[in-house]
């Protein structure tokens, strides 16, 4: 019995010794492999902007953050929009940022009719968080939103980083990932889209109005929005909900629904009826570089006292 316990203890001790360097190597490899380093910059203290933008690709491509910073009075701005992400993921990004520092202002871009509904194009982007799991705020969010276990992740670095193993090996053989339209961020965390409107469905009847229907709304998305609102209030962060212009039929009643959910104290910056010209749009849901620049100017007018 004694022999067994001693050997098991020794075995666990050796595993513990070997585990950390392997986990550390994977962590180094996977972070180096990423082209989009925004979370890493945040964690390293290199992003401490006053105004932070959170949302999906509509915010990543839809607000020219450099232009916004230029137009703001002595305030810096940074974009933490992630393509294909939903409100649960936005809540995680909010939590990660606010665990690191407290921005003065957060602009949460709300995806209009898709914001509270299941959409296969907008998911919880675990893949965007896993590379940075070595950081405690990121681990906390992954544990909350997946079956990754907290305690083993604290005990074993290898277990904590294991999801990144193959990509870390890929870094050894293939180096850093090539930038693509979802990762090629500039120094302000923004990705401009081309000014061509060839992706636009020009047949959309812009004069048509559609009433927003709360049917099929998911409780989990509403809870995420409420959590962001409550946390912002507690921390003294100025939170704005932003609706960006789109090249679609007008959505009527969505602002009322937002007020119903978050109350009247959260300002809604509604630009959904602005920039109606085709020249501002990349496709029906996303602004191009022109549109993003113009929206930045519109937002700055609202934010500047």
């Amino acid at each position: 019995m004694k022999q067994l316990i001693v050997k098991i203890a020794l075995f666990v001790f050796i595993i513990f010794l070997v585990d950390k360097p392997i986990g550390f190597s994977i962590s180094k490899g996977i972070i180096n492999r990423q082209y989009d380093q925004r979370i890493e910059l945040l964690m390293k203290g290199k992003v401490r902007s006053d105004v932070v933008i959170i949302g999906s690709s509509r915010s990543l491509n839809g607000i020219d953050t450099g232009e916004l910073e230029k137009n703001l009075n002595n305030q810096t701005a940074y974009n933490f929009g992630f393509s294909g992400s939903n409100l649960n993921f936005h809540e995680s990004i909010f939590n990660i940022i606010t665990q690191v520092y407290q921005p003065k202002t957060i602009l949460l871009v709300v995806d209009d009719d898709d914001a509270f509904k299941v959409n296969e194009k907008a998911i919880y982007r675990k893949d965007k968080l896993f590379p940075f799991i070595q950081y405690e705020p990121v681990l906390n969010e992954i544990v909350k939103n997946s079956s990754k276990s907290y305690l083993p992740s604290k005990v074993s670095w290898l277990y904590r980083e294991n999801q990144n193993m193959f990509e870390a090996i890929n870094w050894v053989f293939k180096g850093r990932l090539e930038p693509d339209e979802t990762t090629n961020v500039n120094e302000f965390g923004f990705i401009p889209l081309s000014n061509e409107d060839k992706h636009l469905n020009k047949l959309v009847d812009r004069n048509l109005s559609i009433d927003y229907s709360p049917q099929k709304e998911q409780k989990t998305f509403i809870e995420s929005l409420i959590a962001i609102v409550n946390e912002s209030e507690t921390m003294g962060i100025d939170l704005y909900l932003v609706r960006l212009p789109s090249y679609k039929a007008k959505l009527v009643g969505f602002n009322d629904r937002l007020v119903e959910i978050v109350g009247k104290n959260v300002p809604i910056l509604d630009f959904s009826n602005e920039l109606q010209d085709r020249k501002y749009h990349f496709d029906n849901g996303h602004l191009n570089a022109n549109g993003a620049k113009s929206v930045a100017s519109l937002i700055s007018k609202k934010l500047n006292p």
Partner: peptide
């Protein structure tokens, strides 16, 4: 130890 580490490395979140 090698096999144990491999199991830990492959035990993804799902």
């Amino acid at each position: 130890i090698g096999i144990t580490l491999l199991i830990m490395a492959y035990s993804f979140d799902q």
